[in-house]
Design a protein around this nucleic acid. Structure first.
Lengths: 223, 223
DNA sequence: ATTATCTATAGATCTATAGATAATGC
DNA sequence: ATTATCTATAGATCTATAGATAATGC
């Protein structure tokens, strides 16, 4: 044993502790996202980061802690910015524009943070895992969901949307773009899908047709 | 070591090979569904089945083979029966009844085969795993999806549904009940959700409002 | 001098197998 | 007599740690 280290494999870059920590978290999100917690090994994460396993455990006390830190770091951002944009649409009473923007943003988010969203999907299934619990709490009071529910309730009160439980209406408004994004961005499903903007336009119109009040029985003035 | 086996733990029931195999598959679906492939151990499956690990490997050559067999056994059933029922609604031109039935059936299916559906969700994420490939092929040509796409196309041709890519319309019709079922049946989300029939009624009306043709610009006769 | 990283390895699991044992069927 | 099942264990991982080494900063 006692291998003489091959000299060409040395010459490593030595990052600051904070830098290495951040890099490990990035890599961890991509590996955990690809294979889930149980399917990922610290060995694989170390290899993907180009470091030894010992380095991982220098920065994180356990695999569990690494998983939790990776989730925490990336789910903190929130969606305050998107909510602000959507509020603008609501002021202008542009329901279709609001939905179109919502759908596009969801698609973009899933595409940009593919690994994180895969990790979150695994996380939903692995709710048993303690490391996920803080995530649930966060997701439950997600600003986007809270805004949407209040928005729906307001439009219902104004008689523009048909009555019904706002959570259910909201569920529909989110289910459609989410399902689309999950299928086209997270699963490997080979896509002959049209581009996201066209999909957003189409779904925005369909969703709006569904949630808007029915016209008075036999005739209706458009608006 | 060499433990003397505690006599009270004996008195095992000895099943036929076929019977044990079937029982192991059942248990495997529930364990794989709970924790995914990587998170499940043959030890846990053996314990849940009340047998030794060796017995598992007597019936299945590897953990992979067990996983694949568990998936195969349960995804063979198909949805021919549901499709037949939906065809009845189409003949009667009862779009709302069709959607209501579709939604209810999806909810019932997810509730009854919770573990299997959890396993399938894991499977979508773990497409890398070879054992899942046959599943994809099957799911792609799922009779329910094929029926729905043709149904949508026919209703569009009849001018009842608004025009647009049938896959997208279909995606919406499935996304809403699926998302609802996944949230209420597969995730541990504590539900203050209304009962499924009420949800089905509500969503059927919303979805129909979305997919049906807009009325002629300013007035419309309620068909 | 400080500290990020590595090599080497311990100890715990995990999948899988070999050979022994006991429950069934004739 | 047949065969389903078990005990015991091999061999391969996997997580985690101890102590050595080398890259940086002063």
């Amino acid at each position: 044993m006692t291998l003489a280290p091959a000299p060409e494999t040395r010459a490593r870059k030595r990052l600051s502790a904070a830098g290495r920590r951040a890099q490990i978290l990035d890599v961890a999100v991509s590996v955990f996202g690809e294979r889930g917690f149980g399917g990922s090994t610290t060995k694989a994460i170390a290899a993907a980061a180009g470091i030894s396993e010992a380095t991982i455990f220098r920065h994180f006390p356990s695999k569990d802690a690494l998983y939790m830190a990776a989730l925490e770091q990336r789910t903190g951002v929130g969606s305050a910015q998107l909510v602000a944009v959507l509020e603008g649409y609501e002021e202008r009473q542009d329901d279709e524009g609001l939905l179109r923007t919502l759908i596009r943003s969801i698609c973009i988010g899933y595409e940009r943070d593919r690994n994180l969203h895969r990790m979150l999907l695994y996380g939903w299934l692995e709710q048993g895992r303690a490391a996920n619990t803080r995530m649930w709490e966060r997701m439950r009071r997600y600003p986007l969901i809270e805004f949407l529910e209040r928005y729906v309730a307001r439009r219902q009160a104004a008689g523009v949307f048909r009555p019904g439980p706002p959570e259910l209406v909201c569920g529909m408004l989110l289910a459609v773009p989410t399902q689309h994004a999950v299928h086209t961005k997270l699963y490997g499903v080979d896509g002959e899908a049209p581009d996201d903007d066209a999909v957003a336009d189409f779904y925005a119109r369909l969703l709006l047709g569904g949630v808007r009040s029915e016209p008075a029985d036999s005739t209706r003035s458009r608006l």
